[in-house]
Simulated scan of single mutants.
Amino acid sequence: MIHPLAYIHPEARLAENVKVDPFTVIHGNVQIGEGTWIGSNVTIMEGTRIGKNCRIFPGAVIGGIPQDRKFNGEKTTVEIGDDCTIREFVTIHRGTTDRYKTVVGNGCWILAYSHIGHDCIIGNNVTLSNSCQIAGHVVLGDYVSIGGVCAVHQFVKIGEHAFISGGSLVGKDVPPFIKAGREPLSYAGVNSVGLKRRGFSNEQINGILDVYRYIYNKGLNTTQALQFVEEELPISDERDEILTFIRDSGRGIIKRHSKTTADEI
């Protein structure tokens, strides 16, 4: 299963049924789970942990040292879960002393030419379309989907089940369950289609819509809206997740789109 033209460091640990194609280099202190395929011309560097049944396509570089001037050679890792697809020329950098690791969850699709910077935490079943650029320290919740050619600013958080339109610049936190688009990036409604596909009931989706009506559509500031939602709307897991996310936001959340003169022309 290991092509003779691949180089595997003697201290790398590959499980059974790992297939490695020619001209790939796997450094020491690497672990790869069973059933994973590593395509040709892939470089897997020290500190990388890859789970079971992953597919790593040609040209990917995983575990490169962080693009961070403060990095001083610390022992850090990249940890990739099971059943992930990492397409051509993706780069994923290991952590720094902030988290000591970069994490990609299970079932993720990281498409061609995308980059995941140091100390990112990527949840399960996340999709990054082609050429997404994720800066360091970013946190993406489960089932986040990001369209092609997006750039996400360092330290941004995107809540679970959020959908980001292609070509977006993400400089503020994006709350869970919503769609975001336009420039500057703005609230564009609840991600109802995605939620239905993942088994959310109409009652759950309507509850989420009610929360966001008060956050974005009633003319309240964020503090007022959160207070009203907590005091007046029925308790639910989704309601409480939204409240917690917004209250914990370090960069502030995206706003509702405001029509400008340019829009009216």
Rank of each mutant, 00 (worst) to 15 (best):
M1I: 10
I2R: 10
A6D: 08
A6C: 13
I8E: 06
I8L: 07
H9F: 06
P10I: 10
P10Q: 13
L14D: 06
A15S: 11
N17Q: 09
K19H: 09
V20R: 06
V20C: 03
D21E: 15
F23P: 00
V25S: 08
V25W: 05
I26H: 06
I26V: 04
G28Q: 03
V30N: 10
Q31M: 01
G39P: 12
N41V: 04
M45G: 00
T48W: 03
R49I: 11
R49P: 00
K52F: 09
C54Q: 09
R55K: 15
I56H: 09
F57N: 06
G59C: 12
A60R: 02
V61I: 15
G63N: 08
D68K: 02
D68N: 12
K70C: 03
F71N: 02
F71V: 07
N72S: 15
N72F: 09
T76V: 06
V78W: 12
I80P: 07
I80S: 05
G81E: 11
G81A: 04
D82C: 14
D83H: 07
E88P: 08
F89T: 14
T96S: 14
D98W: 14
D98Y: 15
R99L: 15
Y100P: 00
Y100L: 13
Y100A: 13
V103H: 04
V104I: 13
G105K: 01
I110L: 12
L111P: 03
I116E: 05
I116C: 11
H118S: 09
H118Q: 12
C120R: 06
C120D: 13
C120A: 13
I121W: 13
N124V: 01
N124M: 03
L128R: 03
L128F: 10
N130Y: 02
C132V: 15
H137E: 07
L140C: 13
D142R: 04
Y143V: 02
S145Y: 07
V149C: 15
C150M: 03
Q154I: 12
F155K: 05
E160G: 09
H161I: 04
A162P: 01
I164S: 12
S165L: 06
S165D: 09
G166V: 04
G167Y: 03
V170L: 14
V170S: 01
K172S: 12
D173F: 05
V174R: 08
P176N: 09
P176C: 13
F177E: 02
G181D: 15
R182Q: 10
S186C: 08
Y187H: 12
G189E: 04
N191E: 03
G194T: 04
L195C: 08
R197C: 05
R198L: 14
R198M: 10
N202I: 05
Q204N: 06
I205T: 02
I208E: 04
L220Q: 00
T222V: 14
T223S: 07
L226Y: 01
F228Y: 09
E231S: 02
L233A: 00
I235C: 03
S236C: 05
R239W: 00
R239S: 02
E241K: 13
E241W: 02
I242S: 05
D248C: 13
S249K: 02
G252V: 10
I253D: 10
I254S: 01
K255S: 14
K259C: 01
T260D: 02
T261A: 14
E264K: 15
